[in-house]
Design a protein around this nucleic acid. Sequence first.
DNA 1: TCGTTTATTTAACGTTCGTTAGTATAGTAC
DNA 2: GTACTATACTAACGAACGTTAAATAAACGA
Lengths: 191, 191
Amino acid sequence: MDDKDLRTRIKEVAVAHFNDNGYHGTTIRNIAKDVGCSLPMIYYYYSSKKELFDEIIKKEFFDLVKRQAALSKNDDVIDLYTKFIYGLNHLSDYHRKVYRLGIKVYLTFDGDEELMNLMDEWEKGILPRHREILQPYIQNIPNGEAVVRTLVHLLETMIEKIVVKNHYLPKDEIREEIAIVLQGIARGGLS
Amino acid sequence: MDDKDLRTRIKEVAVAHFNDNGYHGTTIRNIAKDVGCSLPMIYYYYSSKKELFDEIIKKEFFDLVKRQAALSKNDDVIDLYTKFIYGLNHLSDYHRKVYRLGIKVYLTFDGDEELMNLMDEWEKGILPRHREILQPYIQNIPNGEAVVRTLVHLLETMIEKIVVKNHYLPKDEIREEIAIVLQGIARGGLS
DNA sequence: TCGTTTATTTAACGTTCGTTAGTATAGTAC
DNA sequence: GTACTATACTAACGAACGTTAAATAAACGA
């Protein structure tokens, strides 16, 4: 940990602090203390507290969710979503905190207007992405659009349970719930 | 608004501030300014910032969710849940903010350990309550327990969308999604 | 070896925070 | 009318905040 460059270590510690105490509850002094450097070093690498926070959200968080969104479309659709959610259980501690922090900002916690707009753009892309994935399955069923919405809603709660609330969700429970929503449109479900 | 007693008005303004800026981002001075009273009046009615925050969560929030949890069990089960979620669209501004603040604390935002424990207790009661409501319907189906879990997960996202994200969810969309999860166990579903 | 850039420090600036001491006003009981 | 209590204020305390100025140490090409 100590051989990483200081800039990176500052960011890692900052993620933990913003997570535990929110933006206003986090102090540059406490970050510096945990990093083990002096206070102005934070300002040597980041021009302000706000810039440090923004870099975490804009780079770390959005890079992470973009990577997460790259689902392997080869699988059966229930497998695909099960793997996606289950994989969150094994995120590294750092990435989990980044993810959690992003969700907090998304839920209008501490960010500012600019970050909220970025989040809204991101949110708007979620439903179309899953609609595309599910399109082959829902073409011929009457409430296909509602199924997509329901699945996305279910996924969001499970993501929150794992990433934000730190709960472990077993693979078969995840699969069961996804199968309940997708029952009727996908072959290979459990029930 | 001005004829209410000062103690109540302080609490109402505090709810708005804690909501917008989090615990640490909220200042007693700003609350006093918005209330239109002097700063020490806050301390006349509340012994500290923390006590003010705690009263909002412990009394206002838990009173609200207990009231919300009193579902009218006469209806068809899909009607029951649809009405429950749809009704959240019409919460008063104040109660919506109280609800939102509670959810933020629940998602480990700004609170302390004691409040988090209260929240965990509350969370533990959710699943059993819905299991009891759904019991007549799931007795004879193999994945009944998973259906309960899935429904609760779906409800949580919808609550968040309405209360935290301030989205309006139309009644028929709510009903559609609930019916998808409960399809097969309840008569009277849409699809 | 010297000059320059990079990395790091101590010390402090001005501001704002939560909180309180001290005081004034208004109503009420006797 | 006087003592008392509830309600309100002005002013200030000490502490902590984000941020910066100034100085020092290390690294490195010339």
